Simulated assay, not measured.
Amino acid sequence: MTVTDAPAVPGRELADRWAITELTAEFGLRVDTHEWDRLVQLLAPTVVIDYSRLHGKDPITTDPAGVVGTWRGVLENLKVTQHLITGQVIELSGDTAKCTANLVAAHHLPNDSGAPDWTLGGRYEFALERAEDRWLITAVVLFPLWATGNRTIMQLAGSRNTTR
């Protein structure tokens, strides 16, 4: 399809696509900067987190505080993380949407048991709903495609009882 063949996009649809792209990019940024209060503002009152393809555990349905509580205990004990979320492809359906995006997530923790880095590549599939004048994430599903490095650093970080 060429630019001249592309269908016209109404203003609201274009605004929705921009807002969802921004929201999903901000999701990764707030995780990396540990801005948990800002992260919870991106999530619906009930959210599904499905990392079952990564670790074999069942998806969880929780509230934004539950998401933060689960992630904070691991991610704040890593030296640094960087979640790059890009290439968002968005399907709009009224007040709901699906966004599939590429992900590269780098994790760093110097340690005595191996390499300090673990990097995961894959896709996120976000489900979203419109809430008044903004979009909120209702589900995050991770589809891992590749990984490199020392995955054990995630367990090491999770077993620490302090956050940095």
Score class of each variant (00 low, 15 high):
67 V>C: 07
67 V>F: 12
66 G>V: 10
79 K>W: 14
26 E>Y: 00
22 E>I: 00
84 L>I: 09
46 T>R: 15
47 V>G: 06
64 P>C: 11
61 T>E: 13
47 V>P: 05
20 I>C: 01
34 H>T: 07
61 T>Q: 13
38 R>Q: 08
26 E>A: 10
45 P>N: 09
101 A>K: 01
34 H>E: 06
28 G>Q: 10
51 Y>W: 09
101 A>Y: 04
17 R>S: 03
49 I>R: 04
83 H>Q: 12
85 I>D: 01
40 V>D: 03
95 D>R: 11
81 T>P: 08
82 Q>W: 07
98 K>Q: 14
48 V>G: 08
60 I>A: 12
80 V>A: 15
97 A>D: 02
104 V>W: 09
72 R>Q: 15
108 H>N: 10
52 S>T: 05
76 E>M: 13
78 L>S: 11
19 A>W: 02
102 N>K: 07
98 K>S: 11
101 A>M: 08
57 K>C: 12
81 T>G: 10
98 K>A: 10
24 T>K: 00
96 T>G: 08
73 G>Q: 13
103 L>N: 05
21 T>H: 02
80 V>L: 15
43 L>A: 06
29 L>D: 03
54 L>W: 14
105 A>F: 12
28 G>V: 03
82 Q>A: 07
76 E>R: 10
107 H>T: 02
104 V>H: 08
68 V>R: 06
95 D>S: 14
87 G>P: 07
20 I>D: 01
100 T>M: 08
59 P>E: 13
92 L>Q: 11
62 T>N: 15
56 G>Q: 12
51 Y>N: 07
57 K>G: 15
26 E>H: 03
35 E>A: 15
82 Q>N: 10
15 A>I: 12
30 R>G: 02
91 E>C: 06
32 D>E: 10
60 I>N: 08
108 H>L: 14
55 H>Y: 11
34 H>G: 07
59 P>I: 05
90 I>K: 05
80 V>E: 12
86 T>M: 15
37 D>T: 02
29 L>M: 08
58 D>C: 07
100 T>F: 01
74 V>R: 13
27 F>C: 01
64 P>E: 10
91 E>N: 11
